[in-house]
């Protein structure tokens, strides 16, 4: 099968859905003429024009608010917020409007939109361009939260997101844009709420998201040689969340590490740990270990950013604790 990047996979899905459905359009900062900070919307402006690839004023409240309004008006908008770090400025639109309109209005109207944004620390961008604060969105009922880790998952899940009638937060990860993987040329979808067992194993379960999936897989590969068999599970969507696949794995391995790049306190690793602890306590031989970004801002300087980003080293330490 052909191999394309994560960024190309996202681009392919947007392009296909725009061709298929006249109501699908994009809006955001620098997504048109420039083609998006991470190239995900490149050449779409040339192909579809400004109406459907709308470069907006630098106004995050307006981008999300207008997308909500356009959805209410019968369109299927794909707003882009350049970095997740900019979402606090438009949190009212996301939390109080986008997530609640369908509910507050008693189901009278749908808000079909896919808010694409970017998380993760990379390239020494310091404290305001490096965060993974999507637990805010997991904390907000009414939103679907998607975290693809591979080009295959990115295309399939974006296709599902655009077709879905609920508001979706589609979380892309900076360190993954140039990663490559096999992606079918044809259209396909991946259902929400279905975790993917990225690697089977018997001794230990690692639930990982985004870039940490790849760290976990690399480590599992290395440890296989030492005789340790690690199962790696990617939830792929944080809302809805597929706890069954994780429970089944924990039943088998009796040990769990949860790895996610959001901050440790009230982060996704904490939430998943709580879900498992609550229902699977009797199956656990050891305490659940969380691997997450520390309770600290992401600093600028190279050695400090390296110390901040959770990765293979942190996973190794966690494994040493449970094995």
């Amino acid at each position: 099968m052909r191999t394309i990047t994560y960024s190309e996979a996202i681009h392919e899905s947007i392009d296909y859905n725009m061709e298929k459905d006249e109501t699908v359009f994009n809006l955001g900062e620098d997504i048109g003429v420039l083609g998006g900070g991470f190239r995900a919307t490149h050449d779409l402006y040339e192909k579809y024009g400004r109406k459907r690839v709308l470069d907006t004023p630098l106004s995050e409240i307006a981008i999300v608010g207008a997308a909500i309004g356009a959805a209410l008006g019968g369109l299927r908008p794909i707003p882009e917020i350049m970095y997740i770090d900019f979402t606090p400025g438009c949190m009212d639109m996301i939390v109080n409007q986008m997530a609640k309109i369908h509910f507050m209005f008693g189901g009278q109207i749908k808000v079909p939109m896919v808010l694409r944004t970017v998380c993760g620390a990379a390239g020494y961008n310091a404290a305001q361009h490096s965060q993974s604060m999507y637990p805010f969105f997991v904390h907000t009922p009414g939103l679907i939260v998607v975290t693809p880790s591979t080009p295959y998952d990115a295309k399939g899940l974006l296709n599902t997101s655009i077709a879905d009638d609920n508001p979706v937060i589609f979380m892309e990860h900076k360190r993954l844009y140039t990663s490559k993987g096999e992606v079918p040329e044809e259209f396909y979808t991946i259902p929400f709420g279905k975790a993917d067992v990225k690697r089977e194993g018997d001794d230990l379960t690692i639930v990982a998201t985004h870039a940490l999936v790849h760290d976990a897989l690399a480590l599992a590969e290395e440890m296989e040689k030492e005789g340790t068999s690690i199962e790696v599970i990617d939830p792929r969507t944080l809302v809805p969340f597929d706890k069954e696949t994780i429970f089944k794995s924990v039943e088998k391995t009796n040990k769990l590490i949860v790895a996610d790049e959001s901050i440790l306190s009230c982060g996704m690793a904490s939430e998943i740990s709580a879900i498992v602890a609550e229902e699977m306590f009797d199956y656990l031989d050891k305490p659940i270990i969380r691997v997450a970004s520390p309770n600290c801002h992401c600093p600028f300087s190279m050695p400090l950013e390296d110390a901040y980003i959770p990765g293979k080293e942190e996973l190794k330490e966690a494994i040493a604790k449970v094995l």
Binding site: G65, G69, L75, M93, F105, I109
Partner: peptide, 29 residues
């Protein structure tokens, strides 16, 4: 919604960007 009444809003100012977007959907269509 049947009468295109897209809601009162508990957040002061919250409806303004939404109205702009509904307006854009009209331009679009």
């Amino acid at each position: 919604v049947e009468k295109n009444i897209l809601g009162t809003n508990g957040i002061v100012g919250g409806g303004i960007p939404i109205a702009a977007g509904v307006g854009y959907s009209i331009v679009y269509k």
